[in-house]
Amino acid sequence: MIITVTLNAAIDKSLSVPNFRLGRRHRTVEQRTAAGGKGVNIARALKTLGQPVIATGFAGGPTGTRIVDQLTEESILNDFVRIREESRTNTSVFDPTNGQQTEINERGPAVTDNEIQLFRDKLLYLARGADMVVIAGSLPRGVDPAIYASIIRELRKSAVLTLIDTDGEPLRHATRAEPDVISPNVLEAEELVGHEFNDDEDRLIAVGEMVEQGAREAIMTLEDGCVACLKVDGQLQRFRVSVPPREDVAGVGAGDAFLAGYVAARYSGKSPSDCLAYGVACGAESTNHLGAGIIEPGLVDRMLSQGEVDVRMLSAPAEVT
């Protein structure tokens, strides 16, 4: 069983608006509303990929009720802690004429110490039957940025594989807690290691630096794939995985789809290179859809069978050209 953790779950509105301009009135040509937050998006994709998954986290007020109801309608198993304050609503506007995307994310509810303890108890109970726990997304207001780190340490006692996808201080603390895998994007990784990257060589060095900071393995997602530092036969190896340029419908949630694909493949016992290839294919395919966590598994398999995903294992960053 795989558990996904979303402490700042949301209702996500995805709108397609041609020629979007600030200060003007527009009409959508396509729209979608769904339960969201990174962990929820990952759970949706894992369910589509046929993996056993339970989504948990916080859900509050009428919006929280909508989140739980929508997950139930999608047949995604869930067990959220109900909180007093209202869960957030996020809005994403995609302009199909130029490919630009604008996101407006609410900061989320405040959570009490008692509600946090209820969640900890629930997660540790669920983890008794789990093999992997994916912790993803931002924190609600007032929550200690070290909470993910403490959760990782508690889960390690149960020998559960932990994966983390967040940013800022929560990611910094979580990395020091030695999670099994961290998966930031480029901007999040730059903030974590403390400097900007100019090219693939810099990025390949950076995933090694993230491992030095505490993560057992590290993946950095890119627009065209990822770079990674993963264990192969007990030894850390660097990878560069890429796909050809694509004409996207929308890019929101591509990182969530990548991580879902990677987790699904790893849960199935695939090799590190196959896990990365499957994750990249899932992330690329998801950009054909408006809304996060939506994947067509058949098209993912087609991409892989047609050799659209290039995987290179590198003995050192200097091999990058």
Score class of each variant (00 low, 15 high):
G291P: 03
L71C: 08
I67S: 04
L187S: 10
E73D: 11
E85K: 03
V232H: 15
E191A: 15
N8G: 09
I11R: 02
K47A: 10
E73H: 12
P184S: 14
G60A: 08
K157D: 07
I3L: 15
L71N: 02
T166L: 01
E188T: 07
R21C: 07
V40H: 01
V207Y: 01
I219T: 09
R32F: 14
F119H: 04
R27G: 03
G307I: 01
V241H: 02
M220Y: 05
L187D: 05
S271E: 14
R203M: 06
V249I: 08
L118C: 07
R107G: 06
L204Y: 11
I182F: 08
A215R: 01
E217K: 02
L222W: 02
F58W: 10
K270M: 13
V193D: 00
T6G: 00
E103K: 14
Q235E: 15
A127S: 13
S268W: 11
A136R: 06
E285V: 07
S305P: 03
F197R: 09
T91S: 04
M210K: 08
R246E: 09
R84V: 10
F94D: 13
L49H: 12
K231G: 13
Q100V: 13
D224P: 10
V5Y: 02
I116A: 10
G142H: 04
A250S: 14
Y148N: 13
L124W: 10
E188M: 07
L15Y: 06
G168Q: 09
D256W: 01
N114G: 08
D79H: 11
V53N: 02
G269M: 14
T6K: 01
A316C: 08
G36T: 07
G283T: 06
N185Q: 11
R120Q: 08
N105C: 11
I76S: 15
H173L: 07
K122L: 14
R107V: 11
V249G: 07
S242N: 12
D199P: 05
V68R: 12
R107D: 12
L230C: 11
G57V: 05
A174R: 07
I76W: 08
R84N: 06
I152S: 09
A159K: 13
C282H: 00
I42A: 01
D274H: 14
A45K: 00
E73Y: 05
G291S: 04
